[in-house]
Amino acid sequence: MFKKFTPSTDIAGQTPPKSSVQRSIRAAVLQQWKIGPETLEEIWPKKETLIHVKCREHISIYSVQSVPLFFQHFDGPFYPTLRLLHQYPSILPKVGIDRGAIRFLLAGAPMMCPGLTSAGGYLPPSEEALPKGTAVAVHAEGKEHAVGIGITELSTEDMRKLNKDVAVEVVTHLGDDLWALQTL
């Protein structure tokens, strides 16, 4: 999503949404992430204005005090930025890729099922299965911090069952152009 993203040409404008819209964004984030209102208050205090950074191809980045905190594609789920996820690793459910898949992910490739179902990969147990379309933290074999953030293209149960094709579409990863954008 942030391949060849150039702030000077790909950002259309920065505006603060109406306060009613800000409230509904806050509610949506609280509902979508595993996060309490107190923690969200630390990240995005109510007295701080959220800025909507409108980008090309219906990407919206939201920032507080010039720091990008989360983003959205069309009206899809809200994804934290990878730096925010590193600070609060439990806000998204986890999947894991094996070591061999890391360099493909870092090149922007989608993650195929075998990268997650192999011995070095990780999928949540059946009782915590994730449906298709879930925003996930993508961790990597032998690493402490997430390497990227993605959205499931299959339910995690189907990833195991089918074990082929795209499992997770990667929306942001270490070293992409959103990672490079530390302030806006």
């Binding site: 208050e41 590193h86 439990s90």
Partner: peptide, 21 residues
């Protein structure tokens, strides 16, 4: 009612990744 403390993550001063990457 308490906020979760953010993890302090060290980033490489050269490539900006966590050093493990």
């Amino acid at each position: 009612p308490q906020a979760v403390r953010p993890l302090e993550v060290l980033y490489c001063q050269i490539c900006t990744f966590p050093p493990e990457y």
